[in-house]
Design a protein around this nucleic acid. Sequence first.
DNA 1: GCGACGATTCGCT
DNA 2: GCGAATCGTCGCG
Length: 218
Amino acid sequence: MLMNPDTTAKLLTSAYYQNEDVVLMARDLLGKMIVTHTPEGTCSAIIVETEAYRGPDDRGCHAFGGRYTERTKTMYMSGGTAYVYTCYGVHPMMNVVTGQLGQAHAVLIRGVEPVDGKELMEVRRKMTGSHSLTSGPGKLTIAMGITRDMDGISLVENNASIQIMDTGITIPEAEIESGPRIGMSIHVGSCSHRPWRFYIRGNPWVSKPLKVDYTGKW
DNA sequence: GCGACGATTCGCT
DNA sequence: GCGAATCGTCGCG
């Protein structure tokens, strides 16, 4: 995909994130641009892969059944908040909280295509010349300088450390693929089959097509 | 307190 | 392709 974002990209508003249909939101966030501002510099990248997590009735979601803990409380904040948690003790995961205050919906960002600040991303990742730079949820957070202490911050402020912009890019329906989410444990049952992973077909920054086969595990 | 585990990644075989 | 790394969170006692 040729990435040539509109330079007049507009910061997405709180109202945008209030939509209660998190699956729709996961799909809509494809083609949007995530921007991070840190002391080391600014990085921006187009979102090319997402997954939806729907609080109340989704066994794959940390907040399933209304579970409210020290970690999940961020998911209940108002749409437009960052939910960052640590996976496997090492990898930060970046989620966008959606829906209204009290609704635990979130969209996991799984793959991005660098636009600006690529050199800084390469320094942070200690690598160059590979799509592996940002093709995975744990990779892109490192590349863009997203850390766990950004958990709970707003994405809609003019001076926010993490922002998401509407670039004017619209991904054609025909280029959007969907499929089962990745990494679901066998305990989430039929929820693992929900086609709530969205990505741009053929984009090299989509996380590697890991084997996703939950047949016979429930 | 304590043991088990995870929305993953990377290096080695 | 496989397994270790690595630690915050969670559930239980």
